[in-house]
Write a protein that binds this DNA or RNA. Sequence first.
DNA 1: TATGTAAATTGACCAAGGTCACTTTTGCAG
DNA 2: CTGCAAAAGTGACCTTGGTCAATTTACATA
Lengths: 195, 195
Amino acid sequence: MPRPPQKRRLETRARLLAEASRLVEAQGYAGLRVEDVVEAAGVAKGTLFSHFTDKDGLLAVLIGAEVMRIIDEMENAAPPTDLPQLMNRLAPLLDFVASDRVIFDLLLRYSGSTGAERDEVVAEGFYRQIDLWAGWIAGMQAAGAVRGDHSPTLLAEGIQAFLNQVIAIRFCQGDQATGTPAEALHPFLAAWLIT
Amino acid sequence: MPRPPQKRRLETRARLLAEASRLVEAQGYAGLRVEDVVEAAGVAKGTLFSHFTDKDGLLAVLIGAEVMRIIDEMENAAPPTDLPQLMNRLAPLLDFVASDRVIFDLLLRYSGSTGAERDEVVAEGFYRQIDLWAGWIAGMQAAGAVRGDHSPTLLAEGIQAFLNQVIAIRFCQGDQATGTPAEALHPFLAAWLIT
DNA sequence: TATGTAAATTGACCAAGGTCACTTTTGCAG
DNA sequence: CTGCAAAAGTGACCTTGGTCAATTTACATA
């Protein structure tokens, strides 16, 4: 019974992603098993690996899509005019990345890069972030709200660095971290951005 | 034939570490196989996992020991008095962490934390670094060589953040990174530490 | 409709990390 | 010395991610 050729493949991929997403929601990223995904999607194991380079590649697509959604939100919001507003804009991303260690590890490993599929989808988000933040900073510099003695891109990459650092320390401290991630991030950004 | 009880265990552990170290030197961290290690050490697989929580735990001990050696060097050198000297002091650590992706990933994941063995050995190095750098910075602040408007610890944690960021971007760009890691780190530290 | 072929999928198989009930070793108390 | 309990070590077995030659599906063309 012949029918659509390329369409079928796209449907299979969509089913794999949908089932994986559902399983992640139910049991978290760390507990996701490839076998469960292919069983839920009704395909053989080999099919998954013809759609994604490996398990991390599948996760990268899921996580990358969520990051894209968050960046869309950031882009649609009004550019921040001061540090408190900047912190507000960053909060959703910070919360998402800090919500699960697997997310953090994966984003950090593939935050830049070239080549494989998993890298591209995540890397695109990385560069969109930097560009967006650099644009914000340029505006804030023009308004005199942040230091003007360095390029917006350098300052934006610093935001990324501190965001990673705060979350890394947070995860590593494991037990009881004091305050929210945003509260931990604030002094770094203040020192980095203000004069 | 009864004899030393605890001594035997220490010898086994030492043999596992020695053989693992030898194998890593020959084929890198990524290529290390647990089976090779236990075979070389002449013990059963289960023995390795009674000495280390898992494969990463073994690697953490190896890498942590090397980091300790590098920090010892840093501590024994004269404290830097300006940014170029600071860069020189950081170079060996930067080179080591940037030399192998497995090292970077592992250090970043377990750079702080509590509890498991692998975490402790790496976490100790992390806090020693921060403390050492904070001491350097306090001296440089007193001499007016770096900004004095923030705590030495905050500035030291910033150094760590940028070091991670530079290496992360470097690994991710995969293909051709321009310049050395130190050259990439320099503008960040200059902007972070100078007024 | 018959047929060639490229795309898509399959599932038996493999590799390698990790587990655990069982055996051996060790040191001490009697 | 002997018996015994804890420490150390063993290796068969399990789990899970990942591979690939073989098979089925999909469509274009004669």
